[in-house]
Every structure is written in C-alpha cells, then in structure tokens.
C-alpha cells in the first residue's frame, strides 16, 4: 500500500534560547493510504503542530517529510488534502452554502463540479436544510458538520481532522464516525486528531500516542489494547485455601469476580481443571479487555514513558 504521509526526524522549535519551545522532537511516522490513522496525546503534545507542519502553516526546524508524494506544505499536495482545524471560524456573514462555495473555489473546483460537491457534502454531513442559513446562527455541532463538509469539498485523498466531533451531540458523533468509515471504504486516508479515545478506538486502524513532541507509543488499536492472558473468573463456593493453591496473581474486582493472570492459555486450562477437581463452581470466565483509554491513562499515570 502506498504511503500517504511520512516524516523522518521531524523537529519543530518555536522561539530560541531560553524561551525555546520544542514542539516536535524528532518525530518519525508513516501513514498508509486508505487507513484511518489517529494521533493521540495530552494537550501540548505536539499533535496540532505536526498537522501544521504537514500543511505548511508552520515550517519545520529539521527533519524531512512528504505528503502525497510532495514535500510538506506544497500547493500541489494541498489540492488533494481536506483539513478541518480545531476551533475553526467562518465569516459570520456567509451562509453555509457560501462558505463551501468560497472554499471550493480556493480548492480549484470548476463551477459545475463545485455546485454538485456543495450539495453532496451538505447531504453527507446532514446540513442540507441549513444551506441558506447564515453561519452566525449555527450551533457548535453544526459548525463542526459544516467544517467537515468544507474538508470534503474537493474530494480529497487525505483528510486531516483536528477534533472533528468536538461539540457534536452523541447522535451526531455516531453519524460523523459513519461518514469517516464510509470515506475509508472509498479508499480515502484519514488522519485523525481527537481527545475522544473511545471514538478513536472504534474506527482507527493505527494509533500514535505523543507526549512532549515525541512519539511514546504506536501500533494498531488491537496491539495497544491487548492485555495478555488476564481473565476474570466468577467462582462459587471457593475457599481461600483452594485459591492459594493456584499460585497465580489474584485481584478481586468490583463485581465479585477474581482477576487472574496466566502466562499461557495452557496454564489457564490447568487452573480450570484444578478448580473443577475441587468442585468449585465456575460461573463465568471472561478475558479481560482493555480500552485505548485505559492504555492511554496507564501510560501517562505511570510516569515511566519510554520515548522512542
């Protein structure tokens, strides 16, 4: 699969001397075409700076990068990129349709194509009824939907979204997620920057977690949320003596289950055999499932982030 975006040793420093802010410190990553790639990290991690470098809104201090086969910030690459910035603002005197017409023209769309794209993107984002309403009357959620429509106006190959569901109600968030998945299925590459980890987890193929301008973790969602052989067992009529004879790490949970860690699946089966041999009633065995949020919180709570 071709690479939509890549960077190698990207450095961005704002200011100089003692006031220097090291927003990016040697970031290297690559995004494959057709995937949903998410960038996570606490505030000030450098996520937005990375996007700004890609689009040429700020200039890199060192390192190299390419987007859709062109250097970062190149006008030719931007013809195939759609971008929804965080806290975007549209001229209050324009209607939703006029906003899309303006940005469509800036994206180089021809007149006939432009009108059909305005209709299509407004439909896609559920904003058709608001086409002729001035944006000053839009709610935050409607502004986000219009922003998404704006990002899609030029039928981009790469869609970069900074907090796309910010201020959107749960139903709207679900609709936006569905739009993103549909776009992915059409072969578009989606670069997502979001604080809503549950959403990221649901739709992302790969995730990068950043902190202080560095990548601290990256991989597929599955790999990041994998917990190993930890199971939650709900047992009836079990005695402490039986449990101590198991020789496994035990952790009681809130619902009365016991969380047990095994090195291998064979070890789990041996434990089950032993418990059954002791006439212990096994009510349920559930493999423990971690979430991206758990992983994220663990990573930043532990304080021992290992920078790549």
């Amino acid at each position: 699969m071709e690479i939509a975006l890549s960077c190698d040793g990207l450095v961005k420093t704002y200011g100089s001397g003692t006031k220097a802010v090291h927003a990016l410190q040697g970031v290297s990553l690559s995004v494959s075409g057709g995937e949903i790639f998410s960038l996570l990290g606490p505030n000030g991690a450098g996520k937005t700076t990375l996007i700004k470098c890609v689009l040429g809104i700020v200039f890199t201090s060192a390192g190299s990068g390419s987007v859709l086969g062109s250097p970062f910030g190149s006008v030719s690459a931007k013809e195939h990129i759609g971008y929804l910035p965080e806290n975007h603002r549209y001229p209050a005197h324009l209607t939703g349709g006029q906003v899309l017409r303006y940005f469509g023209k800036l994206s180089g769309l021809e007149a006939a194509k432009l009108e059909s794209q305005i209709t299509r993107t407004l439909e896609l984002t559920g904003m058709s009824d608001w086409r002729d309403t001035k944006v000053k009357k839009y709610s935050k959620g409607m502004m986000q939907r219009l922003g998404l429509a704006q990002a899609l106006i030029n039928e981009p190959q790469l869609i970069m979204l900074d907090e796309p569901t910010d201020g959107v109600d749960p139903v709207g968030r679900k609709e936006i997620r569905e739009v993103l998945v549909r776009l992915k299925n059409e072969g578009k590459t989606i670069f997502l920057n979001s604080h809503l980890l549950s959403e990221v987890e649901r739709i992302s193929d790969r995730v990068v977690i950043m902190d202080h301008g560095k990548i601290v973790e990256q991989g597929t969602v599955e790999a990041l949320t994998r917990t190993g052989n930890i199971y939650q067992l709900k047992l009836g009529n079990v005695t402490p003596e039986v449990l101590s004879a198991l020789h496994v790490a035990l952790l009681p949970t809130a619902d009365g289950s016991l969380e047990m860690s095994f090195l291998t699946v064979e070890e789990l089966n041996a434990a089950i055999d032993y418990l059954r041999g002791q006439s212990v009633l096994i009510e349920s065995i559930v493999p423990k499932k971690s979430t991206l949020e758990d992983r994220f919180v663990d990573l930043f709570k532990s304080g021992d982030i290992t920078h790549q």
Partner: peptide, 15 residues
C-alpha cells in the same frame, strides 16, 4: 490572519 481562519486558508492549494 485571525485564529481559526488562517489555518483553514493556508490549508488550501493557494500560494
């Protein structure tokens, strides 16, 4: 050059 506007404009294929 106002915040919220300039990012959007500079992301477009316009010199």
């Amino acid at each position: 050059m106002e915040k919220g506007n300039i990012d959007l404009l500079l992301s477009k294929p316009v010199p």
